[in-house]
């Protein structure tokens, strides 16, 4: 615990003088009413380097195709939350609870489940509730994010407000990440390179959950 006297001394430095008129919080900002449209999401996702996949002809077949896509897949690991959506899909293992997440370093494809998606900026929400296997989503070379079709939110103000409520209401969340596309950098001469340290490719598939 921070020592009370030390905190008081520290805080004193940032105390407005007695009698100052203190500015009130401007109030909750609802933001514009943006459409919860998968088309809009797809456009946003494309702009951040991700790909939207359709669950066609069936969800299982589409996921299978994503796993087998392009090349012989290496290690495919699904988070526990995603594993429940993989009935009828083969060639993957479930991430086991581990105290040494480094062991996911050689994962080729991670399959995870996002709790919601935002059309405005293609952000996908994963938290310690849906992804306690946090490192998996960052160490894998590629990632497939399954997101319940009915969990698309239009604007980011509304999306973040939902997360804010969960945090403030005392849900025991350790981490919550909005992911928008694969990792990227433009630190060398402003040239955009997809795949900085984290995933090099990100695909999103709306699913029935």
């Amino acid at each position: 615990m921070v020592d009370g006297a030390a905190l008081a001394a520290f805080s004193m430095r940032f105390q407005r003088p007695v009698g100052s008129v203190l500015k009130a919080h401007p109030g909750v900002y609802p933001g514009p009413d943006l459409p919860a449209s998968w088309d809009v999401f797809a456009t946003s996702l494309k702009s951040v380097g991700g790909v939207l996949l359709n669950a066609q002809p069936s969800q299982a077949q589409a996921i299978q195709a994503a796993i087998d896509m392009g090349r012989a897949p290496g290690r495919v690991v699904a988070s526990a939350a995603a594993a429940r959506l993989l009935t009828g899909v083969t060639g993957w293992e479930t991430a086991r609870v581990t105290t040494t997440p480094q062991e996911w370093e050689d994962v080729d494809l991670a399959i995870i489940r996002a709790e919601s998606a935002c059309a405005e900026n293609a952000a996908l929400l994963v938290t310690s509730s849906s992804l306690p296997e946090r490192a998996l989503a960052f160490l894998a070379q590629r990632i497939l994010v399954l997101v319940p079709r009915n969990r698309l939110i239009g604007g980011f103000m509304a999306a973040q407000a939902e997360l804010a409520r969960r945090l403030a209401d005392g849900e025991a969340l350790h981490h919550a990440t909005w992911m928008s596309g694969p990792s990227k950098t433009a630190d060398i001469e402003q040239t955009l390179v997809i795949g900085a340290h984290g995933v090099c490719a990100l695909a999103v598939m709306p699913v029935d959950a």
């Binding site: 105290t99 946090r134 980011f156 997360l163 945090l167 350790h174 596309g181």
Partner: peptide, 19 residues
């Protein structure tokens, strides 16, 4: 940079209970 949001916007609260 003109992106709609940073690629990763992560909220963290304390130590990771799974580790």
């Amino acid at each position: 940079t003109g992106q709609p949001i940073t690629t990763y916007s992560t909220h963290i609260r304390g130590p990771d209970p799974t580790r």
